[in-house]
């Protein structure tokens, strides 16, 4: 049963494999360029397993010690997981102990596969989702550790490598844009964020931006839902 699920899950994770190795190696390089040994990217990729927040953590580790700020920032950056979780409440039902790991490893990519892919006939759904999550987790840790190790051997000017995170989000934004029929949610996100950035400045705009986004959706909900009805 497990082997069948692993075989079914693997093809879906291949694109993620290439992407995670590439991004993970970049992340390992970035950590190395900031003076951290490979142990750091290994541990952060294994235990945090939230790509964007790990890049942010690299920044936090070279700033002044402030764990409360780190905690709050991680809450904000990862708040989207709350909504992934809400979307997966029914799908993760009846998966037994695996559920704990499925929730722990619910990164953007594992979520997007588990949320959209129906496993083939005869494959256990719980194990399928488990292996999607496990394989993605493995690729990411392997990439980050490899990047950290390669940093010892390969030397080049890494100035600007942090843009890999921006590029990732821009591409995710474009993909979502193509898939969505209604572009207003995406525009609300960009608009509210830009507005709050200009009003509150770069160090404190995230909390007001999140609040403004949620408020906009709550106020616009009845209008959007009416339009959605045929």
């Amino acid at each position: 049963m497990k082997r069948k699920a692993l075989k079914a899950a693997f093809p879906y994770t291949l694109p993620i494999c290439i992407g995670f190795l590439f991004l993970g190696i970049s992340y390992g390089f970035l950590m190395q360029s900031k003076g951290f040994s490979w142990i750091y990217p290994f541990c952060t990729s294994l235990f945090i397993f939230a790509g964007s927040m790990e890049f942010v953590t690299a920044e936090l580790l070279v700033s002044a010690f402030n764990p409360i700020h780190a905690f709050l920032l991680a809450l904000m950056v990862n708040a989207r997981h709350l909504f992934y979780g809400i979307s997966m409440l029914s799908k993760y039902r009846h998966t037994g102990l695996k559920k704990l790991y499925l929730i722990f490893g619910m990164c953007d990519e594992s979520f997007s596969i588990n949320c959209t892919v129906t496993p083939p006939e005869g494959v256990d759904r719980g194990w399928f989702m488990f292996f999607v999550t496990l394989l993605n987790h493995f690729y990411w840790v392997a990439g980050a550790t490899l990047g950290g190790l390669l940093g010892y051997v390969i030397h080049f000017d890494t100035t600007g490598i942090e843009f890999v995170m921006t590029a990732l989000f821009v591409v995710m934004f474009l993909d979502q844009w193509d898939k969505a029929r209604d572009h207003r949610p995406a525009l609300v996100g960009v608009g509210c964020s830009l507005l709050c950035l200009l009003v509150f400045g770069s160090s404190s705009f995230i909390v007001p931006a999140m609040a403004l986004i949620v408020l906009s959706f709550l106020l616009g909900q009845s209008k959007l839902e009416q339009e959605a009805k045929p």
């Binding site: 992934y84 934004f173 969505a180 509210c192 986004i213 709550l218």
Partner: peptide, 28 residues
Amino acid sequence: AVITYLGTVLPYAVIGLLVVYCLKDAVF
């Protein structure tokens, strides 16, 4: 229902927020 509704629209908005987050220092 309101939580389920937010679950459908927020993923789109949060990516927009993250793009802006990446550019927050560049603007200034």
